[in-house]
């Protein structure tokens, strides 16, 4: 009982206060970008953006819109802190990560400002869990400067079949070559592994392709180990954009 009175008094001191009815929504989306231990959190009036980076080469962003929260209050324009994502996820799924029908975990997230820990209060069926996670000094994050005006090739497709293609990639290959072209084979994924090369082609008139806007042939090679984490995000999404 002391807990509830204490909370309403101290709620005013927090620069960020977010409540959500189902903590699983948050843990689900954060799992998709969980390929590094730490993440940088940006909170603004629009919602929460969580960024994970690896080797200054790959960046994953999860954006949780303000509308998804039951209550979302923020007192500063932008709040930035770094946090251990593994620990955050463990806390969010403390009552179990698998969905249990009819049972939801409600979450209250509070942050009192620079140098303060992130407080999580989770509740499920009358059982309360308080978590206090230390926040870290935020790092500079990469700005890839993606700009929508100078896009050469763009495909919007259903993530389902891309996920399948990704999961079947030959992992003995170091690189994945992505080829986009206005002419056949339109969209090709290639690997060059120990056992030989593989190519997967997606025709542009496939049911899976929602839109196909390619102006010139473009071939890029990416390190497969860096692309691998994006498969996790594909698994929970319905549409994927490709630039």
């Amino acid at each position: 009982m002391a807990l509830s009175t204490q909370q309403s008094d101290s709620d005013r001191q927090y620069v960020m206060l977010a409540k959500i009815d189902n903590a699983r929504n948050v843990s689900h989306i954060l799992k998709a970008i969980h390929f590094k231990e730490t993440a940088t959190v940006f909170a603004s009036s629009m919602g929460l953006k969580v960024t994970v980076e690896d080797a200054k080469c790959v960046q994953a962003n999860a954006f949780i819109q303000e509308g998804l929260f039951h209550e979302f209050n923020i007192k500063e324009d932008q709040i930035t802190f770094k946090i251990n994502l593994t620990v955050l996820l463990e806390c969010l799924t403390i009552f179990g990560s698998g969905p249990v029908p009819g049972v939801t975990t409600s979450l209250k997230m509070c942050y009192a400002g620079y140098g303060c820990p992130l407080l999580l209060i989770l509740e499920e069926e009358g059982v309360l869990t308080d978590c206090s996670i230390k926040t870290l000094e935020p790092d500079e994050v990469l700005d890839f400067n993606f700009c929508s005006t100078n896009v050469i090739n763009k495909i919007i497709m259903k993530s389902e079949c891309l996920k399948e293609a990704f999961s079947e990639l030959d992992m003995t290959s170091d690189v994945l070559q992505i080829m986009l072209s206005p002419d056949p084979p339109y969209f090709r994924l290639s690997t060059f592994g120990n056992a030989g090369s593989t190519h997967s082609d997606f025709p542009k008139d496939s049911d899976m392709v929602e839109s196909f806007l390619c102006t010139q042939t473009q071939t890029n090679r990416y390190k497969l180990s860096l692309l691998k984490p994006s498969v996790k995000a594909l698994a929970i999404s319905t549409l994927e954009e490709h630039i």
Binding site: N84, V87, C91, I94, G126, V127, L128, T129, D130, C131, S132, I133, K134
Partner: peptide
């Protein structure tokens, strides 16, 4: 731990 403190309260 250094990183986090978690307490779960069961009531009634």
């Amino acid at each position: 731990t250094d990183m986090v403190s978690i307490s779960t309260h069961f009531r009634d």
